[in-house]
Amino acid sequence: MSDLSGLRRGQSYYEATARSRISGLLDSNSFQELLGPADRLTSPHLEPLGQPCSFNDGIIIGSGKLHGLSVLIASQEGGFMGGAVGEVHGAKLTGLLERAVNEKPAAVLLLLESGGVRLHEANAGLIAISEVIRALLSTRAAGIPVVGLIGGANGCFGGMGIVARCCDTLIINEEGRLGLSGPDVIETTMGVEEFDSNDRALVWRTVGGKHRYLLGEVQHLVEDDIEAFRATAINIIDEVQSPCLEPLERSSELQKLTLESLQQEHLDLSRRLENYGHCQDGTEIWSEMCIDDPEKLPLMDIPRFFKAVENNI
């Protein structure tokens, strides 16, 4: 393992805490936290259930600079209750998205790592996620791009999986997972025949970063390196900021919701269901995409993976 880490140039996104992801992504020392730990905005709903609280309630929010441009940023801490969303956690995120409408940053970066609703405060968490969705789409309607980053150990699931797909664009690493119902939830409810959550390879073929990239569910697949996430985010935002580009010349990933853009998405999703709806496994879908040796994709490093699929996406 130490050999591997020696090869890596930067810092693993997967292993980093929510706070160190922020400091690695933004220009150094530019982060200004909003409602930080000293404000002690903890969840009041955990103590009665004998659960320890956290001074950040599992999410760090604030402002900073990315390549000199002002951004707002939120980072979910997967280590605390799996990054699950409760009343305070959700309200911090909603507040940040609403602040963006007033402050007009170059972008909002959402570092998503969450199992979805926090069951200890389930009703408040579900409503909070719905509020996040509405706030996020209002932020986009105000012309501010929202970029989602996924790549932590807890993945991005439940209602936050829907939130992720409401962003303009997503960046994921190979280790990142994105879905709705976690494999363990499906196994517990529907049985191990439906989904064996201990089959790690199956889990990654179903909800992992490479598959999500091939499907078009995420737009950017990067190495597990905070620097790679940073470079990709900078590219996305620079493009938005560029005064030379007319709105129509911008990459299609950053556009307001319009009837045309949603009709196009509708067509894409309909085709996906039509083409791959019968498939039982990621490898079957990749095979339908005419990728050679689809069973080898999970083993490839990122450069080899891109080479193997470059003609198919």
Partner: peptide, 19 residues
Amino acid sequence: RQATLVGVVSSGNLEVMLE
């Protein structure tokens, strides 16, 4: 300096804040 916080609250772990 502002509050210093290290660690994450999880099973077998803790966060420590200094002010």
